[in-house]
Simulated assay, not measured.
Amino acid sequence: MTDIFHEIEEDLRRDRFRRLWDRFGIYIILLCVAIIAAAGAWSGYRYWSLKQAQASGARFETANQLLADGKAKEAEAAFDELAKDGTAGYRVLARFRAAGALSTTDRAAGVAAYDALAADSSIGGLSRDVARIRAALLLVDTAPLADIAQRVQAIAEGNGAMRHSARQILALAQFKAGDFAAANKTAQWILDDPEVPPSVRNQAQLIKTLTASAVPPSAAPAAPTQ
């Protein structure tokens, strides 16, 4: 009797499975095909992306070599081409390198290239800050203090990775503009930051020393009454 009930139960299970398969089998097959196709497409895309990145990397190195060889114009052209059709990461790198190459022959054009990077919301905030710092460095010897502050003041007031460079440039620009009191204050601001790099700290200490005379001495304490 037990065997009969067992066989009946097996028949019922097979019957239920057959009905389910008749109803949903085609969808199961389509799902399996879709999964296999998606996995194949993803593998193909990863392979294609790797090859594209390798090609962009090779072009980037070639352009760098042109720049190292003193062929600024050829390097600039190579970086410009890579910035147009390279992979995403290399496009941004190429734009930075192109701006750097351009600044060696045309400082104003180099500043404009860095300013364009700083204004591009499609790239990361840190990269945009780096572009502002680079533009300010190109201008620090010649441009009015307001032009420098426009680029680095907000970075200097923040707590990001580029704040030390921004404060350093701001103090130097204030010193060159003859605003010694402001330069002294910015130098002290730098020195008060415990995370400031040694090289920036040393320059800030020098600026503070050179501008000490611009800071009014503290009022002397009153003599005690007898």
Rank of each mutant, 00 (worst) to 15 (best):
R128F: 13
I155Y: 01
I190F: 07
G125Q: 13
V152M: 04
W21G: 12
A187Y: 03
E195P: 00
A204H: 00
K73V: 14
I169A: 03
A113N: 09
R91W: 13
D141Q: 01
I148R: 05
G110N: 07
D11I: 13
L191V: 06
M1T: 00
G40Q: 00
L93R: 06
N64A: 11
A223M: 12
E61P: 03
A136F: 01
L12W: 13
F60Q: 02
I28G: 13
L12S: 06
I207W: 05
V92M: 02
D69S: 12
A156Q: 10
A220Y: 11
T211R: 01
A131Q: 09
R163P: 07
Y45V: 05
R97T: 15
L30F: 10
T87Q: 03
V111G: 00
S165C: 03
D80E: 14
A113R: 01
A39T: 08
F5Y: 11
P197C: 09
R13Q: 10
D129M: 03
R134D: 07
K71W: 09
Y47T: 15
A220D: 13
N159G: 08
S165R: 10
R18F: 07
Q54T: 14
T2C: 05
D193C: 09
S121D: 04
D115L: 05
F175Y: 15
A223D: 15
F180T: 10
G100D: 04
L102Q: 12
I190Q: 04
L117T: 00
A135G: 01
Y90L: 14
P221I: 02
L139S: 06
R97I: 08
P217V: 10
D115H: 02
L31R: 04
G158H: 10
T142Q: 14
S49I: 10
T209D: 06
V111P: 02
G70P: 08
G100E: 03
S103W: 00
A83K: 08
G100A: 02
P198N: 12
T62L: 12
L82H: 02
Q188S: 09
V196M: 00
G178W: 14
R132Y: 05
A94T: 09
R18L: 03
I35A: 15
A222N: 04
Y45N: 07
I133M: 00
A149L: 14
D141P: 01
K71Y: 01
S122N: 12
A182T: 12
E81M: 03
T142I: 09
L145T: 01
S49W: 14
D11A: 07
D3L: 13
